[in-house]
Amino acid sequence: MLRTIFGKTLFEKRWTILIWFAAALISIFGISMIFPPIRDTMGSMMAQVPQGIENWFGESSTWQTFEGFAGMEVFGQMAILLVVMAIVFGAALLAGDEASGTLLTVLSRPVRRSSVFWQKYLAFVAMLAITAIGFYGGAILGGWALGEAVSYDGFALATLMVFLLSLALGSLAYAIGAITGRKALAGLIVGFYAFVAYFIASLSTATEIVDKLSYGTLFRYADAPAVLANGLDGRNVLVLSLVSIVPLLVAWAIFIRRDLRTR
């Protein structure tokens, strides 16, 4: 485990990873447990509300199945949990090491900056993937506990989109951290964007302008209810993947050349 920077990063963060995994599993399982009362109230309520409000909250039929509920609540609203984790770790993994000085200690050994950059990033992806598994597991366990029909493939694809969304935002935070060496700045910029984007995406059905604005939010491309209903949309996968990769490559090119923060 301690043979590589990748292994050491995971080893160091093992308890944090475990806590996030458990938090994702338990909270998603807990949210799943509210499905029966939600089904009863939302089903009858949605049948009486105007069309605009129904668009906002989802059609009444959506709330009648566990899969529909999972698309709206679990993979829709609760995606923010994984997003927060991704931004926190993306911002801190490399820039945090630079701020604390441990990066200089590593680079005082014959280690390439590229190697540190990519190994730390891979560790970040692994941490996110483990938490996403907890997310998926919580939804499956919730379905089992309620005796509802569970779409394993559909949930896996919805989890994949939530993972890609979180990866894109986490990668942005990682990239800003690598360019500036400042984790707080990276977290603040991406966190602010995610906060605004989340609201715009949530309100996208309210008006046409907000709907147009929502194309600028990454949340639009991780549309879980649509994934559960229609399967993966390759274009959305491409957008989220490109947002992960392009800033990362730019950050890598800058990080291997720039002056590091020395204390």
């Binding site: 000085g101 200089l104 200690t105 005082s108 014959p110 291997i256 050349r257 720039r258 002056d259 204390r263």
Partner: peptide
């Protein structure tokens, strides 16, 4: 900045190394 070979045989210690 990118030349690892130059510091292959170098050890470094600073005050309060992290």
């Amino acid at each position: 900045v990118g030349n690892v070979r130059a510091r292959r045989d170098v050890g470094f210690l600073a005050n309060n190394m992290a």
